[in-house]
Design a binder for these strands. Structure first.
Length: 106
DNA sequence: ACGACGGCCCTCG
DNA sequence: ACGAGGGCCGTCG
């Protein structure tokens, strides 16, 4: 398994639960994992483990709504999100609340 | 074991 | 609204 790290396992698991057309944020994941400061580590992990097929990394955006980064380029990320129905304006999601997926209670 | 980055976040001028 | 600074965490060389 390429999922050696403990963190990546959890992150990946969460991402798999996100339905098409929905997104989440690095901080949300971090919170769910217990520590909001994990946000940076989460991004780092996703970057080092670009399992683009098994995990929809592109469904993770920044807390302010901006798409954030992507291993294959933020442009590609935006492209993918839009193809799922997420409206992005100037590299930013207008109504993040509308697309944000809630892990809490899942 | 150590230091340096990174798909970040939040607060304060 | 915008920019700068500080902080915390994991992975890689």
């Amino acid at each position: 398994m390429v999922f050696d790290g403990n963190l990546s396992l959890k992150v990946y698991d969460l991402l798999k639960k996100i339905p098409r057309g929905k997104v989440t944020t690095y901080s949300e994941i971090a919170k769910v994992l217990g520590n909001m400061n994990l946000a940076r580590a989460v991004g780092n992990t996703l970057n080092r483990n670009p399992d683009l097929v098994s995990v929809p990394c592109y469904r993770v955006v920044r807390s302010d709504g901006s798409v954030g980064g992507y291993k294959l380029g933020c442009g590609k990320k935006i492209e993918l999100l839009e193809s799922e129905g997420v409206e992005i304006k100037d590299g930013r999601i207008d109504c993040l609340e509308a697309y944000l997926f809630c892990f809490k209670g899942q």
